[in-house]
């Protein structure tokens, strides 16, 4: 029997399979590994960031700074490598340290100053975006043999598809993220805090360090997503990735994670990313549709999922009430 807890995930999976089948019926070429490979590559940076967002939302919080941190990271790396001639690995390491510290700081403010995550990360969003402008307002091209090598790297998959380094990185992040969520104490603590921070505290969960850890993780993954974005576009631009945090939230929610926290799966977010990618690919195949249809479909899906989640909560409450009556 399907667990009520996993019902949103199963629904998302079902919707994805049906939608994909419908797409393939209309455009048989969408079945090819080439399309799938591109879909993964195109959404790699979003997927990486969405894993961090999954943890944040599972804990009952929100992180609005993601898009800005990605932009900051890409400009930072581009300037370091492109203009200053620093080795890419050094630039990557430096920017990951910065973004992780930035996330920890936001987590600490949320926990120890008691400021709502919405407000703290909104401030973080402006701060990171501003810092990106400060470094450069121009689009900075980047070229380095190592970066070229990473960009050129791929596995050939049967059917002509390419599994690129970016796609592999995203898949790794999802696999590790799923393990951390399901099989570590940190993961269990995230779910516990999302269920009820007060109860979690009374049960001895280290709420403080966990909260800081959650936003540090989100910061780290935003930085990693920024690196992926830099590799993807071969440049850094401070005006890029505006609103990516909202796409990430959408992927998480469509993936079946409750916006109120405590319930959801990292794997669900992966499906959420695939659904978004699928819509974009369909629009490309169709050729006549405006790309804004992506937003419209995402909007409709979000509504459907929020209503679905309410419905499930209502249903399980009712079942519980009935169960009680039977016991008596």
């Amino acid at each position: 029997m399907i667990h009520t807890r996993n019902l949103p995930f199963v629904t998302t999976l079902g919707i994805f399979v049906i939608a994909y089948a419908l797409c393939v019926l209309q455009f048989p070429n969408m079945m090819s590994t080439r399309v799938i490979g591109n879909l993964l590559t195109d959404n790699a940076f979003l997927g990486i960031a969405a894993v961090g967002m999954t943890f944040v939302i599972l804990s009952g919080g929100i992180d609005l700074s993601i898009g800005s941190v990605i932009a900051f990271t890409s400009v930072f790396v581009a300037v370091m490598v492109g203009s200053l001639g620093v080795h890419p690995l050094v630039a990557f390491a430096a920017v990951l340290v910065i973004s992780t510290l930035f996330g920890s700081l936001m987590g600490a403010m949320i926990r120890y100053l008691g400021i709502p995550p919405f407000v703290v990360t909104l401030a973080g969003m402006f701060l990171a975006r501003g810092a990106a402008y400060l470094i450069s307002t121009e689009s900075v091209p980047i070229s380095h043999e190592m970066i070229d090598a990473i960009q050129g790297f791929y596995f050939r998959v049967p059917g002509g598809g390419r599994l690129t380094a970016l796609a592999i990185l995203m898949l790794l992040v999802f696999i590790v993220g799923a393990f951390v969520a399901a099989r570590t104490r940190f993961g269990a603590n995230v779910y516990a805090i999302g269920g009820s921070q007060q109860s979690a505290e009374l049960m001895g969960v280290p709420v403080g360090s966990t909260t800081v850890g959650i936003y540090a993780l989100s910061g780290f993954l935003s930085g990693l997503a920024g690196i992926a974005y830099t590799l993807y576009t071969s440049s850094g631009y401070s005006l890029a990735t505006v609103g990516v945090e909202l796409d990430a939230i959408a992927a998480v929610v469509i993936g079946g994670t409750l916006l109120t926290g405590g319930v959801g799966l990292v794997a669900g977010t992966f499906i959420g990313i695939l659904i978004q990618g699928l819509i974009q690919t369909y629009i490309v195949f169709d050729g006549t549709l405006s790309s804004w249809w992506t937003k419209i479909v995402i909007g409709i899906l979000l509504f459907v999922f929020i209503v679905l989640q309410r419905g499930i909560i209502w249903y399980s409450n009712r079942r519980l009430a009935e169960g009680r009556l039977k016991e008596i």
Partner: peptide, 24 residues
């Protein structure tokens, strides 16, 4: 007292889950 969004087992062992190779 407990967390309704977790399973009974998860509630009983929150914070002291038995682990193998670092994983629960």
């Amino acid at each position: 007292n407990l967390l309704e969004n977790l399973t009974v087992a998860e509630n009983l062992f929150l914070g002291r889950q038995p682990r193998r190779f670092g994983l629960i």
